[in-house]
Simulated assay, not measured.
Amino acid sequence: MDTVDNGGRSQAILIVTAIFLGISLVAVCLRCFVRTRLVRAFGWDDIVMVVAMVLNLAFAICGIIGAKNGMGRKLAHFVTSPPTIGAENFRRALLCWWLGQVFYVTTCVVAKISIIITLLRITVDRVHAWILYAALYLATAVGLLFFFFTIFQCHPVNLFWNRLSERGTCVDTQILIDIAYVYSVGTAVTDLTIALLPIALIWNLRMKRRTKAAVAGILGIGCLASAAVIVRIPFVKHYQDKEFLYNTYQISIWSNVEAGLGITAGSLTTLRPLGRFFKGGSSGSHSHSQNRTSYPLSSSMERGGYRANSKRGDQERGHKIWAGSEVDDYHGVTTTIMSSHRPNPSSSEEDLNPKDDRWRMRD
């Protein structure tokens, strides 16, 4: 047994899992604080992101318990353990791996749905909306494909972790590897789309360049999640290795990085009001002038172009979502994003929350 097998890879899984769980959990907690207490605009995208965080927590627990029981170790580790203990640890490690992959794919897909809902609320161009819907369908399709193949790769299902005692059949490993490649490529394309498209969405906003660069940089963090998927691809081939638990530790690590970064990137875009909060600002102290500035976070199709609905009541709430308050680089500015078609002149101020109840919660 080489020295690397003395818990080194298991320890790496534990450390990476704990770090990215902590980062994503803090980001989501701050998001909930901002959206419920500061801007008071908790919407469906926030609810979906909280669900993603719960799934990510389950994914992390699987990784931690799995690493404690042998994920990242060679078969020799289980053989040299007392027979009963070694067999039980092997079973638990495989079960945690299987459950972890199930929670991994659901975490990533749900997080992407939350981010796409948010982006759809600031999209006023029809082409951008189509791109986002295509990304949504692609992420869901490849996610469901990977999800069902992961669950039903063996018959009976528990044969995957009870392979020492159960009898049954499993899908050819090469098929699983091909499915994993399809999922990885589809996920990388989706991540890059939802990471880079927001830069185009805010490009024409009348912000200071410094603020625009900061917002674009935060939104661009999603590119790192895409990078994690790409880095993960070369290790997919290890699904068929005899030393499965030992050689797939990189898959576990990069899966945690991807899930954690995706949730964090999706939450950081909502945290701008925290700056004013910690400086002693109050979202309520400037409510008298918030209606002078608005930013589109909702959209609908109209004959004259792809533009947001106008509604005075939602205007103030929408401004809070994007800018937090008027004490910002947007002070006193009425912003209109122009699409390829000229919008109705009567709607120079667009509201940030859609009229459609499907996308937001009512107070």
Rank of each mutant, 00 (worst) to 15 (best):
S340R: 15
I23P: 09
Y133V: 06
C32W: 11
R317I: 10
G168N: 15
H288M: 07
T293Q: 11
S287R: 14
F20E: 09
D363H: 05
G324I: 05
D329M: 08
I233T: 11
S298M: 03
W322P: 02
E243H: 05
T334Q: 11
R206C: 04
T123G: 08
A129E: 09
V109E: 06
L245Y: 01
W359P: 00
T123R: 09
S165Y: 13
L201S: 01
V157T: 14
T107P: 04
K74E: 09
H286M: 12
M361D: 03
S325K: 11
S24K: 10
R121W: 00
V16S: 11
E88K: 08
V327S: 05
L352P: 00
Q290R: 13
S81Y: 00
V16G: 02
K112S: 06
V231P: 00
F278E: 06
T84N: 06
V327P: 01
A27P: 01
F149N: 14
L119W: 06
I251Q: 04
S282R: 13
S282D: 12
C170M: 13
I19Q: 09
F103T: 05
I233L: 12
V109D: 06
A141E: 02
K311E: 10
Y181H: 14
L136R: 01
L21R: 03
F160C: 12
R73L: 11
W97Q: 02
R35T: 08
G280N: 08
E316Q: 09
F103C: 09
S255T: 07
T293Y: 04
Q290N: 14
R209M: 07
T293G: 11
L205P: 04
R167Y: 15
Q153G: 15
Y295Q: 06
F146P: 01
A76C: 06
C96M: 15
Q315Y: 05
R360L: 05
L197H: 10
H331D: 10
T140E: 10
I47K: 12
N256S: 12
T269P: 04
V127P: 00
A308G: 06
T248N: 15
P82V: 05
I177C: 02
T3E: 13
S226E: 00
G168T: 15
I23K: 13
W203G: 02
A41D: 13
A216E: 01
M49P: 00
S114K: 05
G275E: 02
D314C: 03
L201Q: 15
R360K: 12
G8I: 11
S298D: 03
R303E: 10
R360F: 12
S300L: 07
S282W: 05
S267E: 04
T264I: 05
I23G: 10
L94P: 02
D363L: 03
T248V: 13
H341R: 14
L38K: 11
R31Y: 09
L95Q: 13
R360Q: 10
S285Y: 01
P82Q: 07
V327A: 07
V48M: 04
H331S: 10
W161Q: 07
I116H: 08
D314T: 06
G324M: 07
P82T: 09
A200V: 08
L38E: 10
Q290E: 14
R312D: 08
W359A: 03
K311D: 13
G313D: 12
I115M: 14
I47E: 00
A216M: 08
K237W: 05
R342P: 00
L95R: 09
G22C: 15
L159H: 14
A134R: 04
S184V: 05
N69M: 14
L274R: 08
L119P: 04
R126V: 07
